[in-house]
Design a protein around this nucleic acid. Structure first.
Length: 272
DNA sequence: AGATCTACCCGCACGC
DNA sequence: TGCGTGCGGGTAGATC
């Protein structure tokens, strides 16, 4: 499933494949993918792809006028294919490009959303995002301003995109294992030292994951022919029942706020 | 008002 | 083989 590093991979790949290509026609095969009203096709047709960015897990494709703000959610992906390519039933949106190729939005579970906006500050989801981990302002003071008066589990807080943007379930599990913190610990019980460890682990893990092209789990590949290699670095996610790589204690899986949570009960034991 | 919780979207994978 | 259920990112709306 695409998380921040996968989205970055998609951005980088699309920039190479469709930079300056013009959209000559659009087929919307499954309209709920499009968040806009009926004007989507007329707003977007005849525009070129000019810029390629990411904010949190949102993909931002800049056009001559306005932007496509895209969230791939669980299984959204893009393919660039030629005219002969046969579309399967999960291809929901087709951009016909001026070089004869087609940009396909493919999403088995139809969870992804694509929104056209004239200005980026008009997009609700983007406006809600907190700082990126690489932002100089994303320090212990910033994080503790969120944690100190909140009682939700620290793992739930890490998944809150309005605090630090871009951390998904896989990485939240990996970050807390790396920083040896109990995922169920209440946010307001963490010390500044522990918050500092979280920030360091988050940066290290996301940097490595981006370098490795993201994580491919289940069916997800960011682009035909591109497969993430981060899965081989996963230390706890999906390893329930298997020995902890540090202490050999079996990794435990529990639900925390409805999300699958993997941790080592020994290494990540809370003293509180 | 702000924090937290719950339901919802959807289709595949899995287990009985 | 077939049916029920778990899964999950973001958001809307309910509830505390």
């Amino acid at each position: 499933m695409p998380e921040l590093p996968e989205v970055q991979t998609v951005v980088d790949t699309l920039e190479i494949l469709i930079q300056n290509k013009r959209i000559v026609d659009i087929d919307v095969k499954y309209p709920p993918i499009i968040d806009n009203d009926v004007n989507f096709e007329s707003n977007v047709t005849n525009q070129q792809f000019k810029s390629f960015d990411r904010k949190g897990k949102f993909l931002i494709l800049g056009l001559n006028d306005g932007y496509l703000v895209i969230h791939l959610r669980m299984e959204g992906k893009f393919y660039v294919v030629n005219q002969e390519h046969t579309l399967d039933k999960h291809s929901h949106l087709v951009f016909h490009l001026d070089d004869g190729q087609r940009l396909i939005y493919h999403d088995v579970r139809k969870f992804g959303r694509i929104h056209y906006v004239k200005q980026l500050d008009k997009h609700k989801g983007l406006n809600r995002l907190g700082l990126e981990i690489w932002d100089d302002k994303c320090n212990v003071e910033y994080l503790s301003s969120s944690t100190k008066r909140r009682t939700i589990a620290i793992k739930t807080l890490l998944l809150d995109q309005s605090v630090i943007s871009g951390i998904g379930n896989i990485y939240a599990n990996e970050i807390l294992f790396d920083s040896k913190i109990d995922p169920k610990l209440k946010s307001n019980q963490l010390t500044d030292l522990e918050l500092e460890r979280i920030l360091i682990s988050t940066k290290e893990i996301l940097d490595l994951a981006i370098e490795q092209g993201g994580t491919s789990i289940r069916s997800y590949t960011s682009q035909l022919g591109v497969t993430g290699r981060f899965q081989q670095y996963l230390k706890v996610h999906g390893r329930d029942g298997q020995p902890c790589l540090i202490c050999n204690e079996p990794i435990v899986k529990e639900q925390v706020n409805g999300r699958g949570t993997y941790f080592c009960p020994k290494c990540q034991k809370s003293s509180k």
